[in-house]
Amino acid sequence: MPAFAIAFPMIDPVAISIGPFAVRWYALAYIVGLLGGWWYARLLVNQPGLWGGTGRRPTQTDLDDLLVYAAVGVVVGGRLGYVLFYNLEHYLAQPAEIFAVWKGGMSFHGGLIGAALGVFLLARRRGLSVLTMFDLASTVAPIGLFFGRIANFINAELWGRPAPDFPYAVVFPGAGPVPRHPSQLYEAFSEGLLLFVLLALAVRIAGFRRPGLVAGIFAAGYAVARGTCEFFREPDPQLGFLFGREVSALEGGVTMGMLLSLPLLLAGLFLIWQAMRREPLPAAGGTGATA
């Protein structure tokens, strides 16, 4: 092992196993992320000062249903996004494998589109502000991102680019003997923890009284974090660099993750601009929402 490498902590990808029943860390990350986001959303809904007083706040029942809509959207959208954006040729040749989700293959950007569609449908059905519901969902989304990237590290997947002289490089099983950036942890910190704190501060300052503001900060913040981490992350082997070529750990060609993050950045900046042009809604009064 090179002098600067850290041995990969061999963690069983199966978190819980009872007979033939097995729960993997990756599945557990989805469950914890969704339930953690649902719990945090309930706390936010019960703080009247964060909400505008001219529209209906989501009730606890709305949030319970939102959990289902978001979960379906994330899983279906994430899988279809991976099929379309990352490995279309393979799945066109073997379409039955599209449904083999246990073999892995999920796309954040596809999951985001699916979750956004679920939020949109629920908001329209319940007479809620679509932009405000996007804001609420965006506030809690980094919880799932954090645990998802930690699960990627445990699974020794989506590893980073070679970094033989980096003191905290890791030799990942299946990635050869070369030490690599633990890019999954970089993403857990930036897309998860750092973005969560940024959005919590935005909610504390502006609440949800500028519809679209928090969603815009999330979209732009994620795009910047993901685009930055892509400089340290090894491109998917079936795609490689879309154009350009790798020069060093901090330079290289454009990856699919970078390309998909660009429209997200533009959409986020547009939402922020639109939200700041409007006068904030007056603060709501009264007690927290009930089912």
Rank of each mutant, 00 (worst) to 15 (best):
L44D: 01
G104H: 03
L271N: 12
A200H: 07
M133H: 06
L158C: 03
L260M: 14
L28P: 01
V76E: 09
Q238I: 12
L242E: 06
V72R: 11
P237L: 11
G37H: 05
L67A: 13
G286R: 02
S17P: 02
L34A: 12
A175V: 00
R161H: 04
G55V: 13
G127T: 05
T287Y: 09
G37E: 01
V171F: 03
L145E: 06
F189L: 14
L242F: 07
G114S: 09
R79H: 11
L117M: 14
A100S: 13
F218K: 05
V74N: 03
Y30A: 08
G257N: 11
A7P: 06
V140L: 07
V75E: 05
G37W: 04
A267D: 10
E157L: 07
G216Y: 04
A291R: 12
L250N: 11
P237V: 13
S107K: 06
A29H: 05
E230W: 00
L239V: 14
L193Q: 00
V214L: 12
R149H: 12
L121I: 10
Q47F: 01
L198R: 00
G33D: 04
Y69R: 11
W273I: 12
G244C: 04
L265H: 12
F99Y: 09
D65W: 14
F231T: 09
P48A: 06
V171H: 02
V171R: 06
R278S: 15
G176V: 01
P237N: 04
P235K: 10
L185S: 01
V83H: 09
P173N: 04
M133T: 08
P48D: 10
Y30F: 15
P282M: 13
P95Y: 02
A206P: 00
A225C: 13
L80Y: 12
A215L: 03
E89V: 14
F146A: 13
S129W: 01
P167M: 08
M256H: 11
S190N: 09
R180P: 00
V101H: 00
G110L: 05
D165V: 10
G118Y: 06
D236F: 04
A156Q: 02
P20C: 09
L28G: 07
F4T: 15
F189Q: 00
L185K: 00
S107P: 03
V247N: 11
M10Y: 13
R56D: 06
A289Q: 10
V203K: 02
R277D: 14
L88K: 09
V178K: 01
D165S: 13
L199I: 07
G176E: 00
E246C: 06
G118S: 08
Y69S: 07
N46M: 11
V224L: 13
I217K: 05
L281C: 09
I18N: 10
E279R: 15
R79N: 06
L88F: 15
